[in-house]
Structures are given as structure tokens and as C-alpha cells.
Amino acid sequence: MSVLVYIENRNGKFKKSTYEIVSYGKRLANGLGSSLTLLSIGRVAEDELKNLGAYGAGKILSAETDAPLDDKAYASLIASAAQNSGATLVVMAHNVTGKALAPRVAVRLNAGLVSAVNGLPVSYQPFVVSKKAFSGKSLMQAEITSDIKVITLSQNTAGIETFAGEALIEKIDTSSMTSGTKVVSTEVQTGKILLSEADVVVSGGRGMRSADNWKPLEELAGVLGAATACSRPVSDEGWRPHHEHVGQTGKVVAPNLYFALGISGAIQHLAGISSSKVIVAVNKDPEAPIFSAADYGIVGDLQTVLPKMTEAFRKLKASS
């Protein structure tokens, strides 16, 4: 019996979210009295895989392949690995890849799936997990009743723990992988902090007034080492790209610190940010609903407040 965690690399390297899901998998395995097996698809150096031992990795199945993500092919590989390792629980991150693969894997394993789980199970027997529902307006507890279970973990909700131990690497065969989709081109953001990985997010709304006013916001983000984001009207207007849109139909983020600058706080936006640990709002309207979701608020004009904030954080960073 084991817990199988699918781990994703980016250009052969693992990210913070990988350490989180590995250490989460280890805690699940401990809770179930079983062992942890990881599955890596792609090309990752042995040292990088071995590093996962410190986060609880026991056995790592390494499927070395250059085949890009194809939902069907990857899901088939993950399901086979789960069957071969006798996994009763399969875990993936609730990100673009996990959303693509977990449902297919669940069908292959005839398993119930609960996605976007927000931490360790409420109970192991029966297996009950907790997640947000109605776009953050409710918390729901769900029991997975099937023999094999699949869950996806909301990022930045479980935390990272370290464990003593060493990882054992076993290569698995990928020669039978075939793809029904053809990748024509790939565009990867470089030199920018990814919204999905960021500890701090600086986000602007319609109150920023125009696309030209984004420079001071980017400066603040630069000082804080933050990712930039925006509300829906801003991406709809084309002031910022769609991949920066945070909210119900955009991205759901869970950073430690979220700055809502000139964002009124429509319910659709709050759905995307309610898992943030601390929210700072700046808005000229004291009645803006964002203040009921925020931890710290400033009523003021961004044109003057934003440069002052950048300066004040720069001072702090310089002194620490």
C-alpha cells in the first residue's frame, strides 16, 4: 500500500510547490500507515531528485522522457505507476497540470476525486478531506468512498516539513508513450516571478486608471520580489495580459501577502484572493468592499500613496 505523488519539474528543477507536495505526501503516508512513492516525468538530474529525500521522499520513480505534456499519455503513465506501486491514494498539485491529469487518472483507476483540498485529511478512516466551495464562500467536507482515491492539493496550504531519510531512485520505461497532440511552439515567461509561486503579489485594478500607470506598481513589485497581477476589468481592457488576471474566472492565488491597489473588491475578485494570508488594500473610496476582505487598508490616492509605499519598503529592505 502506498501514496503516489506526481511531481512536476520546470526545466529539470523542482520548485517550492514540489517540496510542499512531497512533504504533504509523506505526512499522508504516515497518517495512513503506508509509504510514499513519487513519480517524476521528464528529465531531472539525479541530485535534484535525491534532494527530495529531505522532504520525505522514499522511492522516486523517474520516467525520463522529452515528450511534452499530453493529457492522455501522461495520465496513462501516472495511472500505471499507481497500479504497479499498489497506490491507494494519488496526489497531484491543483495547478494547470494537475487539473489536466487528475480527472483522467481518477477514471483510469475508477477512483473518486476531490480537488483543491486545503490541507491534511479531516479523517483517514473514513477518508474525509476539506476544500473551499462556491468560489471561497463556503468550506466543504467530502468523503472519498472508492478503494483508490485521488486528490489535488491547493498550493501554499499545507506548508513544508523536512524529514530524515534518503530517496531511492528507480527509472521506469517510457518507450510506449504516444501523443495525440502536437506542440507547435512554447512560450515561457523568463526573468519574472510566477504568479502561482509568488509569496507576495502586487495587483492593480481599474483605480490604476490606465495601462501607462503600471510602472510604479511594477517598481513596488520589484522592491518586494513580488509577482504582478490585476483584476478582471484591467485584463479585459487589455491593460495587462490575461494570465495576470486574478479572480473567479482568472487565477486563484494564495500568497502570504496580497496588495490590492485600486481594486474595489467585487465578489468575483475576492474569490481569487480569499486564501491570501494577509491582504493590504489601497483605494480612494472608503466604502469599497475590498476593505471588508483586507487586513490593512489605506484610503488614499494611488498616485501619491504608491511611490511612498515603494520608498518605505525599499528602506525596510535596505535595513534588513
Binding site: 487528475a102 480527472p103 483522467r104 477514471v107 462556491f134
Partner: peptide
């Protein structure tokens, strides 16, 4: 995704 249970699951399951 659906805005009630936020499952992100039915499309992938249907394909499989």
C-alpha cells in the same frame, strides 16, 4: 471549473 464545487474534473473525466 464550475463555480459551485470548483472541481475542475468533469471535462478530463469525460475525455477519459
Amino acid at each position: 471549473e464550475s463555480s459551485d464545487y470548483n472541481g475542475s474534473a468533469v471535462g478530463g473525466m469525460l475525455a477519459e
